[in-house]
Design a binder for these strands. Structure first.
Length: 515
RNA sequence: GGCACCGUAGCUCAGCGGUAGAGCAGGGGACUCAUAAGCCCUUGGUCGCGUGUUCAAAUCACGCCGGUGCCA
């Protein structure tokens, strides 16, 4: 009885040569928020993440470590699996490009590309950067000390070898038509303009196989060649829904609703990938969203500066939900952002501890203090009560609208509007006075507040699952009544005995410098 | 070099033709349920510079300066 609408969302697959940093965490958390939101909103969600394991760079690293590429991949893939767990991410699958299911899918896809007539054997000569796993033109390079470097600063080497090519040049028109007809295929819109101008500037055919190393998926029927790592990698999105079997999960989930990517890999996802899919006669994903980068205290993150922020350290220092909240709230998704201790502490203290957390604490404490911990029953509702309840009622639509375009920060703004209204309501109703003058009215006020907190906690689940659930526990909301359908349908039951409250978000105090 | 985008309060940004806005930070006040939190009030900007269009310009056009991105 699955009448639920499917929703398929993916992170990029992370390259096993990298160590997990805050950028990986950011992408993954953003996807997790979307996935959790959609599930609570009644969708049948598939949320995929995983690792990209082939390529010359991995082979070289393995050689340098005196190990095999497979061993290196096994070890480092596990780091990303651990990261997902550490971040409390709710992915439904974790794909590795070295898995049999993927190799089978990619080889099948290759044959479809061959059939399309858009793959031909030629020979490639040009500059290649192993570090970037990308080809460059002569005029893009700079020369230092007699060596050539890509615009990214990565060294390049001259490669000359037989290679299969994909006739990407034939896809300029269809791609431009796609961008035109589906304006939200590439987001944010600034990135869309960049891709359009890139495609208009003429596309060259793409080399899609290599013969000078062998850590990759073999080209069917010509095993001297391994496939270009990006062709291999991009296909993970269809492997995970069962391709080449196009019934079952593929029929249900494909095309993907959202590929979330960092801005560095936008071109692969908005030019190469749709072109491959068109050639293979498969439906195209609905949206690719490119998010920005985080700097640290105003500086670019880099190994040489030694300022790379590790997710585990953030969680250790600030807490998991606090970190998730900060990353989603601090900047408009798509923009670059700056991570600073000051901004982090401010968000935690102002929004979480003083705003949301303290609201819960003061209300629940008053229920203990004035009502013996038993949830009061509401009597006649006043205009003030209705105003607050209506604000809460409006949250879901507002948040849904914002998350439909990945405006995580605006979604949180909308929720916090209600937090602020509720704190104001407490002040205006002054339950501490009512406790002496009008206990009937007191009961109504406290009940109203408790139910608004219930709705807030339901709404914050996608962003801060752990703490939200703790708040819902304090309100004794049954586990099966925490979906968005329960917002209006299942208000709190008067008379319920509530446990003694505990603060949801502690204030963050910078540890004293040890002297 | 070409094409985009950006330059608005100390900070981050919204507004994009009709008497300058929000959050945070700063200042003051009344309260006390609460995580010394919350609430109310408040200081603060010739909207990068210049010219033009218009009855009217942060808002449109052109030029310049400064910054960012993509491409070459």
């Amino acid at each position: 009885m699955s009448g639920r609408t499917p929703y398929y969302i993916t992170t990029p697959i992370y390259y096993v040569n990298d160590a997990p940093h805050v950028g990986h965490a950011y992408t993954t958390i953003a996807c997790d928020v979307m996935a959790r939101f959609k599930r609570l909103d009644g969708f049948d969600v598939k949320f995929l993440t995983g690792t990209d394991e082939h390529g010359q760079k991995v082979q070289k690293s393995a050689e340098a470590f005196g190990t095999t590429p497979q061993e290196l991949a096994d070890k480092n893939s596990q780091n990303f699996r651990d990261l997902a767990k550490l971040l409390n991410v709710s992915n439904d699958d974790f794909i590795r490009t070295t898995e049999a299911r993927h190799i089978k899918a990619v080889q099948f896809l290759w044959e479809r590309l061959l059939e399309s007539g858009d793959v031909y054997l030629g020979s490639y000569s040009g500059w290649y950067s192993v570090r970037d796993e990308a080809y460059y033109n002569e005029d893009e390079l700079s020369v230092r000390d007699g060596k050539r470097f890509a615009p990214t600063g990565a060294p390049v080497e001259w490669v000359e070898e037989p290679s299969y090519f994909f006739r990407l040049s034939a896809y300029a028109e269809p791609l431009l038509k796609l961008y035109e007809e589906q304006p939200q295929f590439i987001m944010p819109s600034g990135k869309r303009s960049e891709v359009i101008s890139f495609v208009k500037g003429s596309l060259r055919d793409l080399s899609i196989s290599r013969t000078t190393f062998d850590w990759g998926i073999k080209v069917p029927g010509d095993e001297k060649h391994v496939m270009y790592v990006w062709l291999d990698a991009l296909a993970n999105y269809i492997t995970a829904v069962g391709y080449p079997d196009t019934t079952g999960d593929f029929a249900k989930y494909w095309p993907a609703d959202l590929h979330m990517v960092g801005k560095d890999i936008l071109r692969f996802h908005t030019v190469y990938w749709p072109a491959f899919l068109m050639a293979a006669k498969l439906p195209l994903p609905r949206r690719v969203f490119a998010h920005g980068w985080w700097t640290v205290e105003g500086e670019k993150m880099s190994k040489s500066l030694g300022n790379v922020v590790k997710p585990a350290d953030l969680i250790e220092t600030y807490g998991l939900d606090q970190t998730r909240y900060f990353l989603m709230r601090e900047i408009p998704f798509g923009n670059d952002g700056d991570f600073s201790k000051r901004a982090m502490a401010q968000r935690i203290n102002v929004d979480l501890a003083n705003g949301y957390g303290n609201l819960c604490q003061r209300v629940l404490s008053m229920i203990q203090k004035y009502h013996g911990g038993q949830l009061p029953a509401p009597e006649v509702l006043s205009d003030d009560d209705h105003a607050l309840l209506n604000a809460a009622k409006g949250m879901l639509d507002a948040v849904r609208t914002e998350l439909d375009v990945q405006a995580f920060n605006k979604a949180l703004d909308a929720i916090w509007h209600v937090v602020d209204e509720a704190n104001r309501y407490v002040q205006e109703m002054a339950p501490w006075t009512l406790s002496k003058t009008d206990t009937v009215r007191l009961g109504t006020v406290l009940y109203t507040l408790a139910d608004v907190i219930r709705q807030l906690a339901i709404m914050t689940q996608p962003f801060m699952p752990e703490t939200s659930n703790r708040i819902l526990d304090l309100l004794v909301v049954p586990a099966d009544q925490r979906g968005f359908a329960n917002l209006a349908a299942n208000p709190l039951t008067p008379g319920t005995i509530l446990p003694p409250p505990a603060p949801a978000f502690p204030r963050f105090v910078e540890p004293e410098e040890a002297k």
